[in-house]
Write a protein that binds this DNA or RNA. Structure first.
Lengths: 234, 234
DNA sequence: CGAGGATAGCGCACACCGTGCGCACCGGGC
DNA sequence: GCCCGGTGCGCACGGTGTGCGCTATCCTCG
């Protein structure tokens, strides 16, 4: 108010609203929108609204909606942490940590798995490539041959992504239903007569804990399988 | 041609164009369309055209487009073959066969993985439920406890679906590009400097064989891991 | 300082989407 | 013969991604 007019105007322009669009700002806004409202709620129009921009203004900075989404996917891949090769937990600890980090990312951004199924990422971004490379390094440091390392990495990521996909879909269903996870399980068990599979899960108080244990179980299977392969060496 | 006229007319009505819409006919047409042109090409309008029907005529038989898609998904799950428990290949052979069958189905219908990522199948259809149940039976017959069997099945299907998702996306990209798989790999290796992961794959003449070997590798990891668990028993 | 060209943003328009609604028709029971 | 439940359809509405051409702004060069 009573500030000297010139700097205050400048400051307000710069701080409150970055004014100009830019690739970064667009990607950041899209990420916010996706996290807050899900994949279906991301449209160029809604994104424009969030940026105080017109519906087609983003096309100066981004070729497609598809390209935009790929950029956001790569952005969140930047959150995945892969330990250094030769870390003190060995290859097994390193791979497990990376897998958990990937899973955590996918559950933090429940829409990613939906995108992975939909769009065959045309050009994998730098962050995704980095994660792959670093996982390969961990396997290599563990003594796996390049071909083995490649296939092992594919197996681990396929498992993690597969798990996360089904979990994300389930969680999405849960909070679209409005009920709690436990209630919904109970309800399903009534309507579907054969579901003795999840019957096994009822010993768990907390469904989230069950899901986490199930994930760890499957991950251990793969890691044990890799260990077997290592032990069979000359 | 020279048939008695009355039965021939009747036959033509019944065989050539079933005339009336029905859930089955709609689902069958949707499946054809999906297999032929992919998920993006399925719209109520295009489906109506294929059925010589109006765009909204299907809504008498199907609640939603989402429900329709779920029906089609369950339909193709009917193609998945799970061996009898106690088959002569043991639990390991049975699970492997089921996994291969599931993978083959997903690659025959490249759009399914896209759907699995998108829609949290609200009510799993009978065929899907049957496949799950039969896989559980195979594990049970192999001596796994119910909880273990449940988690093992989840792990295997997560791995298979995860693999199929990334393969389907890749294959989709391939034939959208118009080039051959080998050409596209070569092209990508030039633009992306770090891809020494797939570098390992170049020893293979046939990319399809590589993909199959990679799948078998990961599946064996899981099965070995399960064997370890079994051997560790009292 | 003034002019000119690049570029960002926007509004409009187009073709397409899922789907609610009410009308027309048609086959079977009283 | 009449009625009536259900089937199919056309229309319309609000939404989508995005191509196109206008305007306004800002940077550069004379």
């Amino acid at each position: 108010m009573a500030e000297p007019s010139i700097p205050s105007v400048w400051a307000r322009e710069a701080a409150a609203k970055p004014a100009g669009l830019s690739r970064e700002r667009i990607v950041a806004a899209a990420l916010e929108l996706l996290d807050a409202e899900g994949l279906a709620a991301l449209s160029m129009r809604s994104l424009g609204k969030r940026l105080d921009a017109g519906a087609t203004s983003m096309y100066r900075h981004v070729a497609n909606k598809d390209e935009l989404v790929e950029l956001v996917v790569d952005e969140v891949y930047g959150e995945v942490a892969v330990p250094e090769p030769d870390g003190r937990d060995g290859w097994r600890g390193g791979v497990a940590a990376a897998a958990r980090s990937l899973r955590a990312m996918a559950l933090r951004h429940k829409w990613v798995t939906g995108v992975l199924g939909q769009v065959g990422l045309a050009y994998l971004g730098p962050n995704l490539a980095l994660v792959s490379q670093r996982m390969l390094d961990v396997f290599a440091a563990g003594g796996f041959e390049p071909l083995e390392a490649d296939q092992a990495m594919s197996a681990v990521t396929a498992y993690v992504v597969g798990t996360a996909t089904s979990e994300a879909a389930w969680l999405d269903l849960v909070d679209r239903s409005g009920k709690s996870e436990a209630e919904l399980v109970a309800g399903l068990r009534e309507t579907q007569d054969h579901l003795n599979e999840t019957a096994a899960a009822e010993v768990y108080d907390d469904p989230a804990v069950y899901r986490e244990d199930a994930f760890a179980f499957g991950l251990d299977l793969i890691l044990d399988g890799l260990q077997v392969r290592l032990d069979r060496r000359p």
